[in-house]
Design a protein around this nucleic acid. Sequence first.
DNA 1: AGTGCGATCTGACAGACCGTCAGATCCTGT
DNA 2: ACAGGATCTGACGGTCTGTCAGATCGCACT
Lengths: 218, 218
Amino acid sequence: MERVETQKVDQKGRPLGRRALETRRRLLDATAELLGKRGVREIRVVEIARKVDTSPATFYQYFKDVEEATLALAEEAAQEMPALAEKLAGAWNSGGGLEIARTLVDAFIRHWDAYHAVLRLRNLAADEGEPRFLQVRRQAMTPILDELARCIRESQEAGLVSPQINAHAASAALAAILERLAAYHTELESLGVTRDDLVETSARILHQTVTGSSGKSV
Amino acid sequence: MERVETQKVDQKGRPLGRRALETRRRLLDATAELLGKRGVREIRVVEIARKVDTSPATFYQYFKDVEEATLALAEEAAQEMPALAEKLAGAWNSGGGLEIARTLVDAFIRHWDAYHAVLRLRNLAADEGEPRFLQVRRQAMTPILDELARCIRESQEAGLVSPQINAHAASAALAAILERLAAYHTELESLGVTRDDLVETSARILHQTVTGSSGKSV
DNA sequence: AGTGCGATCTGACAGACCGTCAGATCCTGT
DNA sequence: ACAGGATCTGACGGTCTGTCAGATCGCACT
């Protein structure tokens, strides 16, 4: 999988030089940091600019608005996903299925912890219908979604999972667990649910839904 | 369950008269409508005011800011939840379990469709850590969460569900499915997953997780 | 080292919104 | 019809946005 270094350009389409790339990166970092502190509605371009000790005009040289900077950050986060999806490669229906599920859940939570604010915002914008954010999210989730759907269909063909279940809907449901719990887990922990509980429980629901094996007493 | 009509007050704590209540309501309705159109970041108090044909100053008479108006709307939405949670009352482990699950999923999606924009915003603010929104969300979800957790524990005691599963974590995971898919379902439908598929599939995952019965070939 | 020129940054400004308050307007009870 | 409280709003200082023209910077070349 070749990674073509995307050619960054400024608001007028001109490619960026060394100095400009540095500035752009500093702006992005500042944006990411602020996204973690203030609520979405309180993010000010002025503040981002101040943080990197430059003028708002500089920000607008690189991004149309805060949203566009966020999009860039979301794209960066999305690049991590393929690696994460590879964890699904193994055979779910052999003995290692549950372990695969655990690994996936754990990795997913880690990923969300690393990009919490950005991913939250990505999902908000996507939910609001912003096409570019819809696309980034889809691009990020597709590897996992497809792989889950494939496994489920396999199990269905083997008669392990009810044909009444729609593989796509099911994989979306499982992804929903991953996303939501990864976003929530801190709150849940403050309510007495261990992170380990979360991983173990989610992994079992995943495993059960994908393979149909209930593992009652294990 | 008595419903004490909460005493509405203006920004200075004074109770509202007839005219004021009407104005407040019109402001809330306008806010709700705009929340559905613009993105969160684009909501302007001026615009809400204009829509109600009044001045921004009037808005501030009733709400500290847009967020507070949203909170009021979220509280209204939350009042629907207890009725919805009652759908869980039946016995999951008897034959009707799957049907209960279907009803729940369907009702939940309906609820989200009715308050989409407000609930999305409620969750955003809650995710961002706003205490008042965290509380509204918790208040709204608790009935369902508790009931699910109770059922799961029952199934565990009956040896139908693995003791490795944490009932609270599991109910949170199931709630995650409900919330996320209710929010997503329009997008999923545009991707070829029927609403019925969604309901049936989610219901089956719920049912399976709560009762441990896999219903393979049904 | 010095110079020229494109690359990069920023001061300054017009336009829009926020949030507040004093005073205007409206309504109700008598 | 009128007093007095309830409700609304004009008007304003402060902050932010988004845009340009002009200032500054630093590399390429001699």
